[in-house]
Design a protein around this nucleic acid. Structure first.
Length: 934
RNA sequence: GCUCGGGUGGCGGAAUUGGCAGACGCGCCGGAUUUAGGUUCCGGUUCCGAAAGGAGUGCAGGUUCGAUUCCUGUCCCGAGCACCA
């Protein structure tokens, strides 16, 4: 069991209640633990971990140091220690990037200062600091990762998020994009979850194309997945933030005046000069929130006064800026092909730009019939000299070859995934083991300095500025350090590091990093700590890691879908880095993953009425519902009338007022009023939350456990039902009565070893009379086969996680026991053993009564079944005529086709139904059925 | 719009490989016990039909001796992504 307790939810609550998050966390963990223990989960509590415990986060920080001291070698596709990169630079195997050299002389590693070296390496490390536009959430007072922003709002709390340039820590997850994509192939995950990850990683294959600019030597690179449509590119669009569109830079290419014959509609706000237009448009677009930009997809933009040259036909095309092109993807510039792209088409229509067809719906068919543009599907190239009549896929490949041959383009793969923004301006997280130096560079903390503990702050609240709360811990932040150089023998990576200067030692001034890690850090590797939770020398012993993960990853991981692109992606990334560094034996952490379905609140029926109180059928209600706080303080569903737009409010109706009519539910009182029937996610505001404590109080932990598993398939979303809990509660009571006897005398009998039976155990035992014993023997005989079938079913169902059918199997068996006069104790013990994983408390109690021993049922071996005893000796075999069930015949188990056919033809009902028709064919599936074709 | 799931009684669901559709539970109906209610027990409960019988797994087709299961088309519901070039 692990408590992932750093992060925003705990901290937000701490702020609200003005209590230190450490206190809140401890209290919540204690409460959760008590609840889990009340339910009776068999967790190994010796392996309890807590991500906020310094003994735990010491290793989170250690893994961060591994990321920091690792670079991704794209030649081998693997992460490698930074010292190996240093060696490549030092030996000259790898040239020093040109930006570090002066125009006169290229610099050598040995000539570089420590500061220069750090700056150089920063560009390679998997953990790096960079100034970039990030998601800043003012309400939370922190930046957020892309994965934590949904529709322009924070995932936690739903607050608005804005783009803002800030200096932040990033993790180079993009380097692993292809590995993360490929790794999905061999995992036993649901297709939908793999799809979500693939979407997020977002690989697309295409080409870079270089466009020259008319009258300039510069080149603009665009990324396209449809190089085959290059002949249809009639204009170009840059993102408003594209460097080429910068007016403020001294070397701007944007002309001072509009070129001759520039249409007025190309000039944003009918500006007098292109520079004014571009600046005005940039200003407008930066004022728009992420959300507005997503919602209002109406095309806007302005001409820049620049023309580009289409490299395939030398055509001069106008260059625009528009916010439908994003700086963050591809090269931030596109070639616009309005004939074959919806967005370009819309833009072209608005700005009156030429639209040309270069893909036909049939080979050589461009002229035969007019097609409606834009045509986005694949077809055959047309009006494109060099690739004409080739199907799209081939045209694409051929065009790339042509571009590469002429040096005006190249094959290119692009990913949507961005680097992981890894720092937060909050208190409640792991401190970074990083020290900033006065020259603006930073060094990692020595491993011997870990854990770097979070300082106790009484004022842990956000500062209201972009400064993190830890910036207030001056004594903690400002330190004197000694930089220890790279020492291949000393530290695992031979990397340079800092340690706090000892008393009397002269150090240099340093400042600790005051940002903290995001909540995902601790949960990225906790499964590895479970394997070896108390190890103080390593995050996990390699032998134990191999033993449990056996080179393949976790056998079965059960979790919610909400982690699809957060935890599950981050974790895989960290794991792959650890794998590359030889720290773990498997390339993937989670081999098999099952998403449990959410349990919704109890089913609700909602009838709609106008404010005046007139009931309306569901068909009249707009399907876009909203909610508001009703007069009673509860959340109320509101919508509007499709016809009149009038406000409608939803009223919850008790089930007894509702009946089913055809495909819909209606009010019993007025069957013309159709109502909505569905279940909703449990939420405090809706008031449909089921508290496990209440269920345990009323029905016991076993009933709660049993019902959760009985409701339906594990993966499925399903509604809670209180009467359903009563159902499994009754089942447990029937088990109790069968085995304990309840108010009736107990009926469990034990063979006395000489063909008779005795009732009860110890001094109270009495032998059954011969007449009773005869009945008991018959009962034992009749229950034997059902018992073996039940063992087989329950065992198999547990293995395939089909707990609902396992429980129904036990219910059937228990019902069979209830019908017996005497219950042989082997049947009772078997039922209890099978029931124990589901309802351990009652099973343990009854087992103790039954065996009069203190031995726990958990130590009793799992029952085995005998395949022979799982089938009946005589079968009631269905007989079909032309595939339609027409009767049954009793035959011995394992009979051959001939025997069964003879028996069937002798059967009166079958004869009658055959009505003398000749049998053309007999299909017999052994022990399943016989089909007579006439 | 794109991608992935899914559609079976009044409800949750079962049918493991193409072979008896509706297991098990809830609810409902009837009966027994009870002064009564509750509990418990027994019986019934897919739909139409008094019955015989017929229909039936979203809808329309197809393959097959046989389809909830496989194929094609289509509708609906859910989830995710979405101006990603």
């Amino acid at each position: 069991m692990g408590w992932d307790a750093f992060g925003l939810p705990a901290e937000q609550y701490a702020i609200k209640t003005d209590t230190h998050p450490g206190v809140i966390t401890r209290k919540n963990i204690d409460r959760f633990r008590a609840q889990l223990q009340a339910i009776g989960f068999s967790y190994d509590w010796d392996r309890e971990v807590n991500t906020t415990d310094p003994l735990y986060y010491r290793w989170t920080q250690w893994i961060f140091l591994q990321l920091y001291n690792t670079w991704f070698d794209s030649a081998t596709g693997r992460g490698r220690p930074i010292r190996e990169l240093v060696a490549e630079f030092a030996t000259g195997l790898r040239p020093i990037p040109v930006e570090f050299s002066t125009p006169e002389k290229s610099i050598a590693w040995t000539d570089m200062t420590a500061s220069q070296r750090r700056k150089l390496l920063s560009g390679y490390r998997l953990a790096y600091e960079v100034e970039a536009p990030v998601n800043w959430c003012p309400a939370l007072g922190t930046v957020l990762a892309n994965e934590e922003v949904i529709d322009g709002k924070s995932e936690v709390g739903g607050f608005p998020v804005e783009r803002r340039p800030m200096r932040q820590w990033m993790l180079r997850i993009t380097a692993y994009a292809q590995r993360l994509l490929d790794g999905l192939e061999n995992l036993e995950w649901s297709e939908s979850l793999k799809q979500m990850q693939r979407n997020w990683i977002g690989r697309s294959d295409g080409a870079l194309v270089y466009f020259g600019l008319a009258g300039h030597s510069q080149v603009v690179t665009v990324f396209t997945t449809r190089p085959d449509t290059l002949f249809g590119a009639t204009y170009m669009v840059l993102a408003p933030e594209h460097p080429l569109a910068s007016v403020t830079s001294g070397r701007t290419l944007i002309p001072e005046d509009w070129p001759a014959e520039t249409p007025d509609c190309w000039k944003y706000n009918t500006a007098k000069t292109p520079r004014q237009a571009v600046q005005a448009y940039q200003q407008w677009t930066s004022s728009r929130s992420e959300r507005q930009r997503q919602e209002e997809t109406d095309k806007t933009g302005t001409f820049t006064g620049i023309f580009a040259i289409n490299p395939v036909n030398g055509r001069k095309i106008p260059v625009f800026i528009s916010d439908y092109v994003l700086m963050g993807y591809g090269s931030g510039a596109i070639m616009a092909v309005p004939g074959h792209d919806r967005r370009d088409f819309d833009f072209a229509c608005k700005f009156d730009l030429p639209i040309e067809q270069v893909v036909a719906q049939s080979p050589r068919g461009a002229a035969d019939k007019p097609v409606e543009l834009p045509l986005e599907q694949d077809g055959w190239a047309t009006n494109s000299p060099g690739i004409n009549d080739l199907p799209t896929a081939e045209a694409r490949a051929k065009m790339i070859d042509l571009l590469e041959a002429r040096g005006v383009g190249q094959r290119q793969v692009n990913f949507k995934i961005r680097d992981w923004l890894f720092s937060r301006q909050r208190y409640w997280g792991e401190p970074f083991p990083i020290v900033h130096l006065t020259d603006g560079t930073h060094v990692p903390l020595a491993e011997s300095e870990l854990p770097l503990e979070l300082p106790q702050l009484t004022d842990f609240k956000p500062t209201g500025t972009m400064d993190p709360p830890l910036s207030k811990a001056l004594a903690w932040r400002d330190i004197s350090v000694v930089i220890e150089p790279a020492d291949p023998a000393g530290s695992p990576h031979g990397a340079e590091h800092a340690r706090v200067a000892r008393p009397g030692e002269t150090g240099i001034p340093g400042r600790r990093e005051v940002n903290t890690m995001p909540q995902w850090a601790g949960s990225c590797w906790y499964y590895l700590r479970y394997l070896d939770p108390h190890n103080v020398r390593r995050f996990c012993d390699p032998e134990l890691e191999k033993f449990w993960m056996h080179g393949r990853g976790i056998d079965l991981y059960i979790g919610g879908v909400e982690h699809a692109v957060l935890h599950l992606l981050y974790s895989r990334f960290w794991h792959k880095v650890l794998f590359d560094l030889g720290q773990v034996s498997s390339d993937e952490p989670f081999h098999r993953l099952v998403n449990q379905g959410l349990i919704l609140g109890e089913a609700e029926y909602t009838a709609f009425a106008t404010e005046a109180g007139r009931m309306v059928p569901l068909a009249e209600v707009d399907t876009n519902w909203d909610s508001r706080l009703g007069p009673d303080g509860k959340t109320q569903i509101i919508s509007k009338s499709r016809q009149t737009g009038e406000l409608l409010t939803g009223r919850p109706c008790p089930p007894e007022e509702i009946e089913k009519r055809g495909d819909s539910f209606v009010l019993k009182a007025d069957s013309t009023i159709t109502v909505d029937a569905r279940s909703f996610k449990m939420s405090k505001s809706r008031g449909n939350v089921v508290n496990p404590d209440d269920v345990i109080r009323d029905y016991g932990a076993d009933s709660l456990r049993l019902f959760e598993m009985f409701m339906g398939p594990l993966e499925q979303v399903k509604p809670w039902s209180t009467t359903g809990v009563e159902g499994v509660y009754r089942f447990l009571q029937r088990v109790w009565r069968n085995i304990n006897g309840g108010d009736e005398p107990c009926r469990v009998v034990i063979p006395d070893g000489v063909g008779g039976w005795q009732l009860g155990r110890g001094p109270m035992a009495r032998p059954l009379t011969p007449a009773e014993a005869a009945v008991a023997t018959a009962d034992a005989e009749s229950i034997l086969r059902p018992m073996h079938r039940t063992i087989r079913k329950v065992t198999g169902d547990i293995e395939r996680l089909a707990f609902n059918t396992a429980i129904s199997g036990m219910m059937e068996f228990n019902n069979a026991l209830a019908k017996l006069t005497w219950i042989p104790d082997i049947a009772a013990r078997t039922l209890l053993r099978l029931l124990e994983p589901f309802a351990p408390h009652i099973a343990e109690e009854l087992h103790e009564q039954l065996t009069a021993s203190a031995q726990s049922i958990m130590t009793v071996a799992w029952p085995q079944w005998d395949e022979e005893l799982c089938t009946d000796s005589e079968l009631d075999l269905p007989v079909q005529i032309n595939g339609k069930l027409s009767g049954r015949v009793k035959v011995a188990n394992g009979s051959d086709a001939e025997t069964v056919a003879i028996a069937a033809l002798r059967d009166e009902i079958i004869q009658q139904k055959l009505a003398g028709r000749a049998i053309k064919k007999k299909v017999y599936i052994k022990d399943r059925m016989l089909n007579l074709v006439v």
